[in-house]
C-alpha cells in the first residue's frame, strides 16, 4: 500500500467519512474510493453494498480476486432524556456495540447514580450537539416529551441527515411537533424522516420493552435502509 493512500484512508476515518480501499490481491493494484465518489465508480453496486453492510469482503471482478477494505465510522446514538427508557437503553446499546451518549439538562434526572455506565451529559442539546457534530452515522432519539429539550436535538438531527431521528410521543404530540417544525421552515420531506411514534411496533409497554423497540428500529434503519449518502458530514 502506498503511504499516501494509507494517509488518506486514516484521514477519512478520523473525519468520520466512509471510504473503501479496493485491492487486487493478485497484482497488488490498489485505489481508494471515498464515500462521496462511490456512485461514479465502476464497482458502484458492490462498493455500495459492502459499505451498507459495513463489512470488508473479497469479491470477484472479471475472474480476479478483489478485496474491499471497508472503513465506516462507528455508529453513535444520542439519546435526549435521562429517563427510565434510556436507563434501560444504555446497557442494551452497549451490548449491541453502539456508542451511546445521553443528554439531559435536568440535573435531577441526569445523575451518575441513575446512569452508572453510559456517557451522560447534563446540559442542553443545543449546547452539546454543535461540538458533538451529528452526521449520517449518528442516530438521535428523543425521550423527554418536552419540546424545549427535544426539539433542538430533532432539528440538529434533521439538518445533519442522521440515519435515524426518532421522537417519543403520541400521534397528537407529534402533530404539534410537526406544526412547530413547519413554522421553523422544515420541509415535509425532512419532517417525514422523524420516526414517531418512536420504536418498532412490537406492542412494547414497559420502559425496557420500549428500549428494545427503539434499538431494533435503529438497527433496521442502519442495516436495511440504504443510508442516503455516504459523503459523511458536510
Amino acid at each position: 500500500m502506498r503511504l499516501e493512500l494509507l494517509s488518506i484512508l486514516n484521514a477519512e476515518r478520523a473525519a468520520r467519512r466512509a471510504c473503501v480501499l479496493v485491492t487486487d490481491t493478485e497484482n497488488g493494484e490498489q485505489r481508494l474510493v471515498k464515500g462521496a465518489e462511490i456512485a461514479a465508480d465502476p464497482l458502484a453496486e458492490q462498493l455500495d453494498s459492502a459499505l451498507r453492510a459495513g463489512k470488508s469482503a473479497t469479491i470477484e471482478v472479471a475472474g480476479r480476486q478483489v478485496f474491499l477494505t471497508v472503513q465506516v465510522p462507528p455508529v453513535r446514538i444520542v439519546a435526549i432524556g435521562a429517563v427510565h427508557i434510556t436507563q434501560a437503553l444504555a446497557p442494551m446499546a452497549r451490548l449491541a456495540g453502539f456508542d451511546l451518549t445521553i443528554i439531559d439538562p435536568r440535573t435531577a434526572f441526569a445523575t451518575p447514580e441513575r446512569f452508572p455506565h453510559g456517557s451522560l451529559i447534563a446540559d442542553w442539546p443545543q449546547n452539546v450537539l454543535p461540538d458533538f457534530a451529528p452526521d449520517r452515522y449518528t442516530a438521535i432519539a428523543c425521550f423527554t416529551h418536552d419540546p424545549k429539550i427535544d426539539d433542538p436535538a430533532l432539528e440538529a438531527g434533521l439538518w445533519a441527515e442522521c440515519f435515524y431521528v426518532g421522537a417519543l410521543g403520541s400521534r397528537k404530540t407529534h402533530g404539534k411537533r410537526v406544526e412547530r417544525l413547519k413554522e421553523k421552515g422544515f420541509l415535509d420531506s425532512q419532517i417525514a424522516r422523524i420516526r414517531a411514534p418512536i420504536g418498532l411496533d412490537i406492542g412494547a409497554v414497559s420502559p425496557q420493552e420500549i428500549a428494545v423497540s427503539v434499538l431494533g428500529e435503529i438497527i433496521l434503519a442502519l442495516r436495511k435502509k440504504p443510508l442516503r449518502d455516504y459523503g459523511g458530514a458536510a
Binding site: 503511504l3 494509507l6 494517509s7 484512508l9 486514516n10 476515518r13 490481491t25 470488508s56 480476486q65
Partner: peptide, 20 residues
C-alpha cells in the same frame, strides 16, 4: 492503521496483514 502510518513516516519498514 494510524500506527502503521506513523511507523512508516518515522522511516521504519512496515507491512500490513489483512484477513481477506
Amino acid at each position: 492503521l494510524a500506527r502503521a502510518e506513523d511507523w512508516r513516516k518515522a522511516g521504519k519498514g512496515v507491512a500490513i496483514a489483512t484477513v481477506t
